[in-house]
Design a protein around this nucleic acid. Sequence first.
DNA 1: TTCTGTGAATACCTTCACAGCG
DNA 2: CGCTGTGAAGGTATTCACAGAA
Lengths: 222, 222
Amino acid sequence: MPPSAKIDKVSEFTTHRLSVYLRCLATLEAEGFETTSSKELAARFNLNSAQIRKDLAYFGQFGVRGVGYPVAHLKQQIIGILGLDSHHNVCIVGGGNLGMALAEYDGFREHGFPIVAVFDNSPAKIGTTSRNGVPIYDFRNLNAITESLKIEMAVVAVPAEAARKVCEAIFDAGIRTILNFAPVRLLARPGTKVQSIDLSISLEGLSFFLSNNAPEAGQEPG
Amino acid sequence: MPPSAKIDKVSEFTTHRLSVYLRCLATLEAEGFETTSSKELAARFNLNSAQIRKDLAYFGQFGVRGVGYPVAHLKQQIIGILGLDSHHNVCIVGGGNLGMALAEYDGFREHGFPIVAVFDNSPAKIGTTSRNGVPIYDFRNLNAITESLKIEMAVVAVPAEAARKVCEAIFDAGIRTILNFAPVRLLARPGTKVQSIDLSISLEGLSFFLSNNAPEAGQEPG
DNA sequence: TTCTGTGAATACCTTCACAGCG
DNA sequence: CGCTGTGAAGGTATTCACAGAA
């Protein structure tokens, strides 16, 4: 069977874990390991070894029974599966506080996602660059610049009110993936994908924890 | 029964959704609505109405059968449940690229999570402030400053290699909640909570999507 | 009647446990 | 033997569907 046969069935949980495995394999490779096992990988984080085997089995038979997985080869396979063998140009939409912060963060580039443009609608900003040299363009030129710079992903960092409209414009420009920081549930069109990172939700989840878990025992309910 | 009786059973999915409901209620209140229903809330995002009723039922009986939920009251209840009726002081550990970007992002403060300190170990940075005036302290003074500034949450923005050690130090200082940006699985101690935001994983998930979903139909497997 | 609150049913994800290959 | 790959079992989250209160 072709390795892509099961690919529709893989959940986001699985693909997220693939990223984690990839990281671990990079470490193992750097440490000189040539082979590893699902058990060893599982021990490195807090995971079940069957989970790892199952995740990998969605994409092919990478292991050798009785032996384990060849580190370098498996790493290369996961890179291929995740599409990380080539760069993906990214733009940031929204040159405000968060947008500029993200534009100036090197982590994107280091992981193969270079930020090639910021889009904003403020005349004061358009034509300038971020501190690390990313040019700020007029959002109205999104379509043309997306094409000329081969942009494949957009990071949405606009206020909540604007997010939905901006999202539509991004899809219209032919960008099919969005990393959304606006506190809004954006709905992907068929053939597109939205991944949301919601700082408020994360913080409020921690706040909930603080409210409902006293520092040291104590509060008996009822 | 006391409203806290079921509180142990609520999953993170539920608390995250509570944040979403809260936002929606704030909008509805601003729009002048006095009452809403699980159906109406469900329609606003893409959710099932039973889900909403169930989520809310963990914490009490806020609705009126045949009528719905009183917007202002429910909003206030959720604020209470999430512990958002008071501020939570936050520190950022790691004054690098991402850490400073986050320190200069106003969103935290606007949502009731003021950033009161950045910790770093670089002598060049210690004693200076971020562009918006957050002081940068020596990480070795974490314990004392945590106490004097009443810090309740830490944002971890250090390189992967340092994250685990930093996490331990944060817990030792008495901070019980961490928002982790380092690409490492951190394990919470009993009585503490770690919430991770992993930009690489999010980006790689989008990359996977791009690799496995052609722009318009086409790739027949097999 | 309308809409909540909730047991039952379903779908999904994870873990177990083992057959089968090297 | 050891470890992978995988069906079966177990958990958890979501959705259905309806009894019951206003």
